[in-house]
């Protein structure tokens, strides 16, 4: 029954590179998306860099994962949010955000939705559990 489906939120607060948290956190999202759970993802603090387009990890000698974030919608992860304040503090605008998939009908590109902190707080209050990476 729909009302039994648990809301699980992922927060991404760390920068995408330098540690493995964000990359392995992405692996958790992809697995959990296959289960009966209402998944949402919020990028905040330095985590907003994970959804910045044009990441190039070649010089770091590590496998990048921008392409996987670019396919979140394919994994049926569509509730993807970015904290406006975190983004602005880091000199990013909506223009800098990568595309996470496209609309099935219109084929329009889908980007993470920029929201204010109080909206995030309200969403957090509704969650069954929250996982931070």
């Amino acid at each position: 029954m729909a009302e039994d489906i648990k809301k699980i939120m992922f927060t991404v607060r760390k920068p995408p590179h330098g540690t493995i948290y964000v990359y392995e956190g992405l692996e958790v999202k992809l697995i959990m998306a296959a289960y009966d759970a209402d998944i949402s993802v919020v990028f905040m603090d330095d985590g907003v860099f994970a959804v910045k387009k044009g990441q190039d990890t070649k010089a770091l000698g590590i496998k990048g994962f921008e392409a996987t974030y670019g396919a979140l919608v394919d994994y049926e992860i569509t509730k993807v949010f970015v904290d406006r304040q975190s983004m602005e503090e880091r000199g990013m605008t909506e223009e800098d955000l990568l595309v996470i998939g496209e609309d099935e009908d219109t084929e329009e590109p889908i980007k993470p939705q920029v929201v204010d902190s109080d909206e995030i707080a309200a969403m957090m209050a509704e969650q069954h559990n929250i996982l931070a990476f």
Partner: peptide, 15 residues
């Protein structure tokens, strides 16, 4: 696998 973590997140009142 991570499916176990998923089940814990779903079944537990607090993770």
């Amino acid at each position: 696998g991570l499916g176990q973590l998923t089940m814990m997140a779903i079944e537990a009142d607090r993770l």
